[in-house]
Design a protein around this nucleic acid. Structure first.
Lengths: 190, 190
DNA sequence: CAGCAAAAAGGACAAATGTCCTCGAATTTA
DNA sequence: TAAATTCGAGGACATTTGTCCTTTTTGCTG
């Protein structure tokens, strides 16, 4: 739980006692490689902090292709947010790229925390704001760069993902084809 | 204020009395065409609901080009969120595309609302969640569709913006060049 | 309303990226 | 461990998009 505590402390002021008080609401759980944390069509009742491992979020587009929209690594949060927030069926699947350890909270327990304490209201809002800013960065930067620029940025910012994820998934995450990614990789190694 | 009340009601349950109670914290203000609601380098002390008009958000990239990251139309919120939330200098400018009427709240007043009431904590969190989901949608679309698909989607989802904004700004919003946009427009009219 | 400036359209060519395919290496499964 | 399957690299060509430029249109100002 230590890493999760540090994560929360990086977002809001939080004493160790306060953390201890609420930690029973959080469960630890492992997810084997290739198994799912969320699935398309099923309502997502949990959000998670990733203690160790890597998760991939994807959806299916109109051409029935998997499109990877996110890689979530250690010390980050993950959830099918739309489904979790609205408690409606998920449009996303979240799958473990490697064996992964999670710290989770259920939707119901989170609502209890929100009712119990202004602190958690604050944490909830700050996390939503944070996720928004991360997504804004992703959107505005990634979408105005060339294939090569996007790959170079990923190499810089998410080197671990490059090593663990498949070429297919990395390409769809960057919005390019496998062929283009292969060309870029060749170019770089020279 | 009526449209703003309806907007809030679409996000959280809210009685008319509750709305009246807090409405003094909100100010109405107009913004002339081409003038700024937020400017790069200046800390943004206000967030706004757009009663009427259209705003364009942009930043300057490494090549010193304006990149339009967002068009915000009537009945939506706008802010240089990162700057507003963190109270640090803005990386974005927000400019009126046409004469615009805003309903604004200051950072300080919003903090007061958060302290005063769990309702506003809830509204704040729900809005952050909502903005996140909008941004997520924008990101995945922009990165995985062709120039023509992106333009067609914009025609469908934001027809008013197409009519009001310049070709330059629409192109940079879609992450394509003017030339490509011109080609697509010609193709469509045939 | 003429003249000017800014914005938009579009021609010609170059570069980037996609499509479809094959081949060999790596990984899984019987 | 052998066979089967998946995965990644890359060739050949097509298509899309970008760059640089000129021409046309639009809108503003005196």
């Amino acid at each position: 739980m230590e890493s999760f505590k540090l994560f929360l402390k990086s977002i809001v002021p939080l004493s160790d006692q306060e953390f201890e008080k609420y930690s029973p609401y959080f469960k630890t759980r492992t997810l084997a490689r290739n198994s799912y944390f969320a699935e398309i069509g099923k309502t997502s009742h949990e959000a998670a902090f990733i203690k160790k491992g890597l998760l991939r979020t994807y959806y299916i587009n109109e051409k029935s292709e998997e499109v990877t929209s996110c890689f979530c690594a250690e010390n980050n949060l993950t959830a099918s947010y739309k489904s979790f927030i609205s408690q409606l069926p998920s449009e996303l699947s979240i799958q473990a790229v490697e064996d992964t350890e999670l710290i989770t909270i259920s939707y119901n327990d989170l609502q209890i925390l929100y009712q119990k304490s202004a602190l958690w209201q604050n944490i909830g809002r700050s996390i939503a704001e944070r996720q928004y800013m991360v997504m804004e960065q992703y959107a505005s930067v990634l979408c105005n760069e060339s294939a090569k620029e996007k790959y170079m940025r990923m190499l810089e910012e998410q080197p671990a993902v490059i090593n663990k994820a498949s070429v297919n998934d990395i390409a769809s995450y960057l919005g390019i084809t496998r062929r283009t990614l292969s060309r870029i990789r060749k170019e770089i190694t020279q």
